[in-house]
Amino acid sequence: MRYFHIQILNGIRKEWRIGDSVKTEFNNFYRDILNGIENISKSNFQGKRLIKRAGETLDVEWMDNLDYESKNYENLFYKVQDLLIDYEGLSNELYKSHFQHLKLIREDTFEQTRLEINPLLPSRKKCIWLCTTDTLQNWWDTFKRHPKKRILELELSPNGKRHIADAEYIKTELYSLQEWKTLATDYWKGTKTSNPVLEVLYEGEFKIINEYEKWK
């Protein structure tokens, strides 16, 4: 079985080269989540400001001042439409401000579930994500918005930990803790959805044996 890793080149993370021997550690994926939350905290958590603005947008007094008696429905329609557009923008801003927190809740729930199901499985906090020959093109297309990336072919240690999972369970939505738990359980048990997007988690030592600028 051949294994590949798509490395995003952003000028910050270390670029691996052919011949490098590497051991997985606390990974950039989880570190980026923590850094994102830290950046939000430093900016005085704009979510509070957005919630206040949402309350002002939906102010009851503003709604009471709408002229319903004139039956000028066209004017009423445009006023309400403006309100909905403004509120949609607020919703998007609120979602973005809470996005990293949602990911942290998801990842912590998945990690706790992994420990309960099988602590010998690779951790999403410390693993590297791999593709096989069958799934490489799909993941390459998934990362097409990243202008600088390359494919590394790896030789894995026989002592490393591997797990094949369906990435369709990795959602970032406003789920309850029980819903997160259900998704995590299916993920770690290797259950596949009707349209699976398979990913390989690997934790351990590996060696870079080849690299490609693009896939065939």
Rank of each mutant, 00 (worst) to 15 (best):
Y3E: 00
I6A: 06
Q7C: 08
N10H: 01
R13V: 11
V22L: 11
T24E: 05
E25N: 13
D32R: 15
D32F: 07
L34D: 09
G36A: 11
I37S: 11
N39C: 12
K42C: 07
F45P: 05
G47R: 11
K48M: 10
V60C: 12
E61K: 13
W62T: 15
M63N: 12
D67K: 05
N72H: 08
Y73N: 08
L83D: 03
D86H: 12
L90T: 08
S91N: 13
S91I: 08
Y95A: 09
S97F: 01
H98W: 08
F99E: 09
R106N: 03
R106T: 06
D108K: 11
F110Y: 11
E111V: 02
L115I: 13
E116G: 05
E116H: 09
I117L: 03
I117M: 02
N118V: 07
L121W: 01
C127Y: 01
W129R: 07
L130W: 00
N138V: 04
W140H: 02
F143N: 13
F143D: 08
R145H: 13
R150P: 04
I151W: 01
I151F: 01
E153C: 13
H163P: 03
I164M: 04
E168L: 07
Y169S: 07
I170V: 15
I170E: 10
Y175W: 02
S176V: 02
T185D: 11
T193D: 04
S194P: 01
S194A: 12
E205M: 10
I208M: 12
I208N: 09
I208F: 08
E211R: 09
Y212R: 09
E213R: 06
